[in-house]
């Protein structure tokens, strides 16, 4: 994805053609983010459009020093979190967990993971509980710190860490379940 500054300027000037070009160039990248946070492709596309609208309306705030890819990722993640907040119930949100257990035995899992395709990974992530899914995506893939995640999702850092650990554990279990099946199948 190579976005030129001229294209961004044209988008700021509300040129529809430029907006279309930007959409086309960023579609795959934005979709890869959205698909991880949502349950299906349709939902992901809906949030992608909302996020893209936010990107367009905030383009004037973009500074050339920042990588455009990182900037649109942040905008899109914020959009996804907002969408999640809108539909979540309060009970889901309040879950304070201070104690968590980290599992360290990932050597076998990593080997198995290399053999998996992307679609399988998406399916696994989607099977995680919603809050754990968000925390895992934010921390492990999008690179947010626990402090930022805690602010975003209105929880404590400890809770965020617990969700991350829980997600890893769940994924590990899922992978270990899937790998023998593959072996059997092969």
């Amino acid at each position: 994805m190579n976005i030129e500054l001229d294209l961004i300027t044209a988008c700021i000037n509300r040129e529809r053609r430029a907006e279309y070009e930007l959409y086309k160039l960023t579609y795959s990248y934005l979709m890869s983010i959205c698909i991880r946070y949502t349950n299906n492709k349709e939902e992901a596309e809906e949030v992608l459009n909302t996020g893209f609208l936010k990107i367009l309306s905030n383009l004037t705030k973009y500074r050339a020093e920042t990588p455009f890819k990182a900037w649109i990722r942040k905008v899109m993640v914020n959009t996804l979190i907002d969408a999640y907040r809108k539909e979540k119930t309060r009970n889901e949100q309040i879950k304070y967990v201070e104690n968590y257990i980290e599992t360290s035995d990932f050597s076998d899992v990593n080997n198995a993971l290399t053999k998996m395709n992307t679609e399988q990974i998406y399916t696994m992530i989607r099977q995680l509980p919603p809050m754990s899914q968000k925390v895992f995506n934010l921390y492990a893939i999008d690179g947010f710190a626990h402090k930022e995640i805690a602010e975003m999702l209105d929880m404590s850092e400890g809770t965020s860490k617990w969700h991350l650990s829980f997600s890893r554990q769940q994924l590990k279990e899922m992978i270990t379940k899937m790998v023998p099946q593959k072996k059997v199948a092969s």
Binding site: R36, E102, I121, Y122, I141
Partner: peptide, 15 residues
């Protein structure tokens, strides 16, 4: 742990 980091990186690269 490093294994956990590797797990995350591997997952990210796959995605």
């Amino acid at each position: 742990s490093t294994e956990q980091e590797n797990f995350d990186d591997l997952l990210k690269s796959k995605l």
